[in-house]
Amino acid sequence: MTYTFHWEVPLQNLPLFLWGALATLEISGIAVLLGLLIATCGALARLSKHRLLRGAATVYVEVIRNTPFLVQLFYVYFGLVVVGINLEAFSVAILTLTINCGAYCTEIIRAGIQSIHRGQTEAGLSLGMTQWQVFRYVILMPTLRVVWPPLASQFIATMLGSSVVSQISAEELTYAGMFLESRTFRTFEIFFAIAILYFVMARLFSFLFSLTGQKVFREAWGQL
């Protein structure tokens, strides 16, 4: 009744794992980029003077942040069929992850924008900058500089959270592992290998973010 380890199972199936890891990077990479775009618009809407815009953004953020990701996933995958939209699992995975990531990042960016003193905007305008210039150089770039670390940790959370999408048969790293598990039943060895891959990807993510952070914001600071 002693458990015998079979490490050759994950080792022999390394290509399957690497393919899964790439799919995970694809899903979470797209979700993070689109999520950031949504979040920027969302944050502006949250701080907008228009009540309707503000209300819509608030509803979006509150609904997404106060329901489980798995429920959102099933809702989009099976629920949209009722209104005649039948998407395949991979698209649903990216769509739902984008919406989810967008809501969390909206709050992070909103907090960042609010941390910038109103006086700075006025100063920018009085220097003769256009509305767009003020938004870009006085609000957006300094905001991103401040919120980059919390954004990075949200992005990593999104990447790790993407493991849930295997539940609707979207194929990524966890799906690859569970598929192999269903054929070889080497649960421990396989999940150990998956854990290592997720860890490496998370480190890679945070390395990339700190690198781009340093590059982008040093220049942005210089322009100001």
Partner: peptide, 10 residues
């Protein structure tokens, strides 16, 4: 972790 796993299984 690996040792703990083995111990629990025996």
């Amino acid at each position: 972790l690996a040792l703990a796993w083995t111990a629990s299984a025996s």
